[in-house]
C-alpha cells in the first residue's frame, strides 16, 4: 500500500467522496421516488419508472454524451454554473456527482421499490388504524420494514459509482483531484504502460468489490429474517 503514490491516494479519496456523496443524495431522492413508484395508482407512473431504469441498459457513452450537452456552457448546467461563477459543470466534481446520481438512480430505486411493494399496504393500514398519520406510518413502519432494500440500494449505488467509467470519461475527463477517479486512473496507467500500478489498483478493486458484495449478502440475510412477516 505504501507503494501508492500521492496521485493514487488522491484518486482513491476522490472516488470515495464521489461514491459517498452520490449515495447520500440518492437516498434522499431515491426513497421518495421509490415510494411513489410503489404506492401511486397513476397509470403514467411506469413511464417515470422506465426513465429511472434507462441507465441500466443504455451505453454509458450515450448517457455521458447527453450529460455533456446538459452540463456544458450552452446547456442548463452551464446556466446553473454561472450562478457561482463557473462557465460549465462539465469536467468538474459537481458535474461528476450529478452524472453519477443519474447513472446510479436505478440501483437505488429498484431494490427500494421492490421492498416497498413486497411489504404491501397491510402494515400501513394497520398503522393507520392505530392512529399513525401517513407520515408516521412511513417512518415507523414502511422505512424500518424496507431497511434490507434500502441497504442493498445504498451498497449497490456506492459500489456502482466506484466502478463507473464511461460516464466519467465523457463528462469528467482526467483532472487529478477533480475528476480523476480510480477507474480512470487505472485506464490512465494502462495507456501509459505503467502495468505494475495498474495491477495493484485493479487487484485492490477486485478485493474491495468482493468484500462489499459479501457483506451485502450477509447483512441482507440477517435483516430479511428480521422483517419478513
Amino acid at each position: 500500500m505504501n507503494g501508492f503514490s500521492h496521485e493514487i491516494w488522491q484518486a482513491i479519496s476522490l472516488t470515495l467522496q464521489l461514491a459517498g456523496l452520490t449515495t447520500i443524495i440518492l437516498v434522499l431522492i431515491g426513497t421518495p421516488l421509490a415510494w411513489w413508484l410503489a404506492r401511486s395508482g397513476r397509470w403514467w407512473k411506469e413511464i417515470i419508472g422506465t426513465c429511472v431504469s434507462l441507465p441500466l441498459v443504455l451505453p454509458p457513452t450515450v448517457i455521458g454524451f447527453y450529460l455533456l450537452i446538459l452540463l456544458g456552457p450552452s446547456g442548463p448546467g452551464g446556466a446553473l454554473a454561472n450562478l457561482w461563477g463557473l462557465r460549465t459543470l462539465a469536467f468538474s466534481f459537481s458535474g461528476l456527482v450529478l452524472g453519477s446520481v443519474i447513472y446510479s438512480l436505478p440501483f437505488m430505486v429498484q431494490p427500494l421499490r421492490n421492498a416497498f411493494e413486497a411489504n404491501g399496504s397491510r402494515p400501513l393500514e394497520a398503522a393507520a388504524t392505530l392512529r399513525a398519520t401517513p407520515f408516521q406510518a412511513f417512518w415507523r413502519v414502511a422505512i424500518p420494514m424496507a431497511v434490507p432494500g434500502l441497504l442493498s440500494g445504498m451498497i449497490l449505488t456506492f459500489t456502482h459509482t466506484i466502478g463507473e467509467f464511461g460516464v466519467v470519461l465523457m463528462i469528467g475527463g482526467n483532472i487529478p483531484g477533480q475528476t480523476k477517479v480510480l477507474s480512470i486512473a487505472i485506464f490512465d496507467y494502462v495507456e501509459t504502460g505503467q502495468w505494475q500500478a495498474a495491477h495493484s489498483l485493479a487487484a485492490a478493486m477486485v478485493v474491495f468489490a468482493f468484500l462489499i458484495i459479501l457483506a451485502l449478502k450477509l447483512v441482507e440475510r440477517r435483516l430479511s429474517a428480521r422483517v419478513t412477516p
Partner: peptide, 30 residues
C-alpha cells in the same frame, strides 16, 4: 375522516403484526 383520526381498533384476519417490532412494541404502537 381519514382512518388515523377515527378512534377505532381493527383486528385483521391475518393479525398484521409489525414484523420489525417485538411483541411489546407492537402492543405499544397505538
Amino acid at each position: 375522516l381519514p382512518t388515523h383520526k377515527r378512534l377505532i381498533g381493527y383486528v385483521f384476519q391475518d393479525a398484521a403484526l409489525f414484523p420489525h417490532l417485538c411483541v411489546r412494541k407492537n402492543l405499544l404502537f397505538g
